[in-house]
Structure formats: C-alpha cells, structure tokens
Design a protein around this nucleic acid. Structure first.
Lengths: 243, 243
DNA sequence: TGTCAACAAAATGTCGATATTGCATAGAAT
DNA sequence: ATTCTATGCAATATCGACATTTTGTTGACA
C-alpha cells in the first residue's frame, strides 16, 4: 500500500511533533470539503459522487463519506439514503427562513455579547472593523468578483461582535447560521447588488452602538444589515436559484 | 460473506416494499445508538469502543463510525481524533449553559408558535397534554424510576407546543437542545426531585396561556418550567456528575 | 526510587474489494 | 401502443483487512 506520508509533508520524529498537529485524514478532507462548498468551488445542487471526491482529495471512500456525513448533519449538504449526497440547494424561501432565524438568534447573541463584553472585546471589535475597512471588497473595478480576503475579514468582524456572548451553545448556533448564509452571500454579492448601499457605514454604526452599550439599537442595526442582503437577492429573482 | 438478510426480518419482494422501509444499515445503527444514549443505556462519559459497538449492533466498524460521527456533530458524543469517541459528559456548568440557551431559544420559538398557531395546532396541544396527564410519571410508588412512556409523552407535548413555529431552522435547533437536555432530565428525575413541584399544573398553565394567545406569559411560564428542573439538579450537587 | 526507552498490546483510522441497490434500456407479452 | 419483466450499468453501502497511533508494561540505567 502507498505510505500516507507520500501525500503530505515529511513528518517530524515522534516526540517533536505536537499532538494537535497530527490531523486525521478524515479531518483534513472534511475541512477541505467544507471550505470548497463555502467558497463556492462546489456549487449548490451539485451531486457529490464519492468516486469523484476520492480522486479530488486523494483518499478512500470512507473518509469522503465521513466528511459528507458530518456536513449533512450541519445542513450544508443533503443526504438521501441510497442516493448519495448533494450540496444543499438554494431557494428564496429558504433564504427568507434563514434570514428570519439569523435576525432572531444572532440578534439575541449580539445582545448578550454587548452586555457581557469587556475592554478586550471592545478593542477586538474595533480592530476587526479596522481591518475590514482597509480591505477592498471587489477584486476588479467592475464589482463583479468579491475578494476572498474581504469575505474572510467580514466573517471575522461579525464573529468578533458575537465573541463576548458567554453562552457557548447559542454562539455556536449563531455562527453555524452565518455559515449557511455564506452560500447565499456569495451569490447575492455580484448579482443582486444594491447600489444605494454603504456597507462600511453600516458596520461603523453597528460598532458605535455596540461600544456605546446600546444593545437594542445595535440589534436593530444588525437585523437591518442582514435583511438588506436578503432583499438584494430576493428582489432579483423570485424563482429557485438552484445551481 | 454473510447475507444481510440473516440479521433482519425476511424482506418482502421488491415492489411490495415501500421505499421508505428500505432503511440503510447505517441509519438503523445511528438511530439505535442515539436512542441508547438518550435513554441512558449508554451512560454519559462512557468510552465508545468501535470493537464493542460492532458486536453490540452486529455491523462493521464503518457504520458504527458513521453513527458516532453524526452524533458527535450533534454534540451528543464527543470525538477526539486518534482517541475515539465517548458519550458527552454531564456537568453543572454545562447544564446552566444549556438551560440559558433553551430559555432563550425555546422561548422564542414558543412565541412564534403561539403567534402563528391555528385551530389544528391548538387542538393538538390540548390532545398532547391530555395524553400526558393520563400517563403516570413513575413506574413504582417510590418515585425512583421515571417511566419511559411518560418521558416520551412529555417530549411530544413540548414538541406540539413548538410545532406551529413557521421557521424550520429555529424549530429544529430548539428541539436539538431539548434532546441535549434529555440526558440531564434522566438524572434529575429520580435524584433531584423537587417535592414542592406540581408538574402537571405547570403544563396546564402553559397550555392555558398558549391558547389564550398570551405569548409573553406562556414564555415566562416555560422559562420557569425549564429552570426548575435545572435548579432541582444543580442544588443537589455542585460537583461534576460525570457518569 | 524514579526516569526513560524499547517493546507489546489494544484501539483507532484508512483502505480497497465486494455486496447491494437504483436506473435505464431493451425485449416480450397482452 | 402500453405495460411488465429482464438485463446491464453506474453508484451507493457495507465489510473486513491492514496501517497507524496510543497506551501500558517491562527493564535498563542513573
């Protein structure tokens, strides 16, 4: 059999390697798969044949299946027994459901975060927003392609806002909803662009309200922020936008 | 190789069998495993060795692993790479976290359910409560053993309350938190019993408020209902109660 | 006595082969 | 022509073997 080392970097001697570095192949493939879906490299609705994926990720069917199973549990992919897996499709109805859920849950978590946030949290929010403001949204002048980098910074900014919520579970759930929405944002960016919108200023107002400790206002702003993205896409096309 | 039919009932000819009945082995084992954990047949903290489980469920390591992976994603079991799986342990801190999350989320979902519920929903709530009231809580006079049947009815009652919430995602998340709490309820029932408590009357008040359309009061009652169970266990033992 | 290394045993993770199922095409029967 | 059945193909599900890692034990050495 082919040694596993052949597909990874040469491995350090046993005792020099941190236990955390010993990533399982299943873990790696799961992470990659998730990233590929979230980044739009695997489009919504795509059938995920295990044979193709074993080749793509250079591993056996078992580890592919494990990754798919985990993602299915999260709702990022759909699993139908005896029919395999496919990337969860997008629909306007689902987007509206998702947005409602996010407004409710993320709003709640934001409120808790503001109420419990200390100085360190405040500064990390300011820092995250600063980085975000200095990162260009679009790769080109035509505003056709959103930059990966901006997407990442945007995610980190919102994550920072929620970070002070002391409740692990609620925070995790809110973040998982953000991930689900990431798929939609990838579509709404280039196509359903709202010209009248000034996203950086939305973020700034949000930061201001948060630092002021005005949770109610911050939550209001967050909900508006979330709903605008939804409207931008929803107005454009009422039909299914399954990929 | 051993034919798969040997371990299940003889299978009907193809066309007489509903497609839904064609349960995958992985599905069966996952369901069983989940039930065994939720019912306390696999105690919190228990190490889940694949070799033992393959024997217990009469299947290969793959399907056991798939089930464990799914449960890990739900938080019912813990997965540590290279160290296998174990049933998630219980702790008072975690219970408090969980209760807070449930009060917030389940309260929210209940509110939405009440606001959107129609006659059919109302009647199903009344029905579920009726069944619950006629089901004895304890198997014996000593109140040492809670009946499986009551647990099931209790779950169905609360599920019925939430059923009219139009938001699929929020409802699902609320229910998954209920499942997580089920483990704790199994312990708090026999041991941390609150003598001053009249659970059926708590339920009745909840139903009354819900049918009256008084969402705010219903949510208040629900939160109190949830917190009482927490207190019953938390007061009894501040240390870890890992099984 | 305590530490460390080598070794043995047990458990986890990964693999590729095989069994099983679903689907499409084609042929037979009514 | 339509329906039913048979057959082959493609994809999924399951298995058990094997590789890898962790853990426990023993014995040398300070």
């Amino acid at each position: 059999m082919v040694s596993r080392e052949e597909r990874t970097e040469p491995v350090l001697p046993e005792r020099h390697r941190s236990p955390l570095a010993a990533l399982t192949r299943a873990e790696q493939v799961y992470t990659q798969l998730r990233a590929d879906i979230l980044a739009g490299r695997l489009l919504p609705g795509t059938k995920l044949r295990s044979a193709e994926l074993t080749e793509r990720y250079d591993c056996s069917t078992s580890v592919v299946r494990e990754g798919l199973t985990r993602l299915a549990e999260q709702g990022l992919v759909q699993a139908e027994p005896q029919h395999g897996f496919h990337v969860t499709s997008l629909s306007v109805d689902d987007l509206e459901d998702l947005t409602t859920a996010r407004c409710a849950l993320e709003g709640l978590v934001l409120r808790m975060s503001i109420e419990h946030g200390d100085i360190a949290w405040e500064s990390s929010v300011v820092a995250a927003n600063h980085v975000l403001e200095r990162t260009p949204i679009y790769l080109d002048g035509d505003r056709a392609l959103m930059s990966e980098e901006w997407t990442r910074c945007h995610g980190r900014f919102h994550e920072a806002l929620l970070a002070a919520c002391p409740n692990q579970r609620l925070r995790t759930m809110a973040l998982s909803l953000r991930d689900a929405a990431e798929l939609y944002r990838r579509w709404s960016g280039p196509v359903g662009h709202d010209e009248a919108r000034d996203v950086p200023s939305e973020h700034r107002d949000l930061v201001d309200a948060a630092l002021r400790g005005d949770a109610t206002e911050a939550v209001r702003l967050l909900e508006e922020h979330l709903r605008r993205t939804t409207r931008a896409l929803g107005a454009r096309d009422r039909a299914d936008i399954t990929g």
